[in-house]
Design a protein around this nucleic acid. Structure first.
Lengths: 93, 93
DNA sequence: ACGCGGCACTTGTATTTTGCAAGTGTGACG
DNA sequence: CGTCACACTTGCAAAATACAAGTGCCGCGT
């Protein structure tokens, strides 16, 4: 019983999948995501909160006011879907 | 070289993937999509235009003012990505 | 001790997207 | 000739997103 609406509820909003794709490379800091993706800062903050609440990623405190965002197991499980979508996007057939 | 942004440009907007998922069951008429998905009618019209322009689906004239929407090969190729996402959405692990 | 700078955000406001309700055009059918 | 189903369009309100600027925190150099 597949539930596409449930998936889109979490990762269907703008920037969400791009954030997760970037995190597949490894934990990233806020500024890294912002610069590499070009996402507006308030949207990034909002999405990170939502994705954390959904159990897709978690905050890792590094130093005083520095932390990293890393995928949980549930977040890593998005890898398949992301590569499938990315492959489709690059196929010009 | 995978291009997730390119994919999201086409199918990342609201309702787009849900429309494609429904069309995977076979060609559907406008009213069918509207009733089964609960999508607002102006959004449905807009998405269908965009998806047709992107080569994801095509219009099949049936009778006078009745037509069906069917996936192209490029649209069918989204099946993998959709099932991957849907599986992720149903997995509560 | 004090100011500076980087980091992770927030806040305010404009712009774009989405949603809702109602209306339009077309041709078949009685 | 009127009615109906179908596939939309149009006008307007609400929500999401973008842009620009500001805030709080602490470590570091002077």
């Amino acid at each position: 019983m597949s539930d596409l609406p449930a998936a889109l509820e979490i990762v269907g909003k703008r920037w969400a999948l791009l954030i997760v794709e970037k995190l597949l490379e490894g934990p990233q800091r806020y500024g890294d995501l912002q610069r590499d993706l070009g996402v507006p800062t308030n949207m990034l903050a909002t999405r990170l909160r939502e994705l954390e609440a959904a159990g897709v990623l978690r905050r890792l405190p590094l130093r005083h006011n520095t932390r990293a965002y890393a995928l949980t197991d549930r977040g890593l499980a998005l890898g398949d879907a992301i590569t499938a979508l990315a492959r489709w996007g690059s196929d010009k057939s």
